[in-house]
């Protein structure tokens, strides 16, 4: 009885999460402009998605922004975490506190305040993409920092000291000894940074160049617009992203899963 209830609860929650995405995926392969009306099978949404220059520019722009801002965020956040880890109590607390502000703050407040500072006060031109990239780094670097810190805590400090005793310079010891031990934290920090940038709407909308769109800002504009073919092409985009995400997540967990299983069973 208990087991049946548990299974039913999980299934219901999964249905709530996946039913809209699945229905949209199903209808993305039809000529129907709305759910509920059944029309004939068609790939036209996918043709529109991959042949409309505006859509292609928006998708490539979103991913370029995500990778560039995530790389900067990873370098800054990871080096900040290493530095703070070895700093005195006071500077460590200061960095930790500052790092926590974008984490807890509402995204709309973060976006608004960066826009006021960079564009209204410093008069930086939005069209340079500089405010947008800075905004996304502010959004994601703190999460890189947070995913590196636990790895530093788990690290075996004596290996670093041994490297120094055997004649390595501190810089070389960091690259050869510390970095490999926290690499998984840096990598997951980078991935979080990418997803945060891809998922962001608020920072982008306040700091982006007028003619540039990310997926989020584009979708929000499209829902207000009346262009049906663009609206349904976004259903195709949602389906493609869904399939890619499922593949990536499954592959990554198959690769990392085996080690984790062994670790957890001990």
């Amino acid at each position: 009885m208990k087991k049946i209830f548990a299974a039913a609860w999980l299934v219901a929650a999964l249905l709530f999460i996946y039913l809209p995405i699945m229905l949209l995926a199903l209808y993305s392969f039809t000529t129907s402009p709305q759910l509920g009306t059944i029309r004939e099978f068609s790939f036209h949404n996918y043709v529109t998605l991959f042949t409309t220059p505006e859509l292609r520019k928006m998708i490539i722009g979103t991913f370029t922004l995500a990778v560039v801002s995530a790389l900067i965020a990873t370098v800054l956040g990871a080096s900040g975490a290493i530095g703070a880890f070895y700093s005195g109590k006071l500077s460590k607390a200061a960095i930790h506190g500052m790092n926590h502000i974008p984490v807890i703050n509402a995204d709309v407040v973060t976006g608004f305040s960066i826009c006021i500072f960079l564009i209204v006060v410093l008069n930086l031109n939005k069209e340079t993409y500089i405010p947008l990239v800075i905004g996304h780094v502010v959004l994601s670097a703190p999460f890189v920092y947070l995913s590196v810190v636990p790895k530093l805590k788990q690290m075996d400090e004596s290996i670093y000291e041994a490297a120094l005793d055997m004649g390595a310079t501190p810089l070389r010891a960091i690259v050869k000894v510390i970095l490999p031990q926290i690499l998984s934290g840096i990598f997951s920090g980078f991935m979080i940074a990418v997803t945060l940038s891809l998922d962001d709407y608020f920072v982008a909308t306040y700091t982006k160049p007028a003619t540039f769109d990310t997926i989020s800002t584009y979708v929000v504009n499209a829902t207000k617009g009346a262009q049906t073919n663009i609206k349904t092409a976004l259903w195709a985009l949602s389906t493609v992203i869904f399939i890619v995400v499922v593949l990536v997540v499954v592959i990554m967990n198959l690769m990392g899963g085996k080690e984790k299983d062994r670790y957890e069973e001990i």
């Binding site: 900040g80 703070a84 700093s87 005195g88 305040s113 500072f117």
Partner: peptide, 25 residues
Amino acid sequence: FSRKNLCIPYALFLVLFVIAPVLVV
């Protein structure tokens, strides 16, 4: 070269783009 100096770029970044915007607002 000291390990703790590695945090200087990030600390500057935070002061400039996290603290300053809050103060401006």
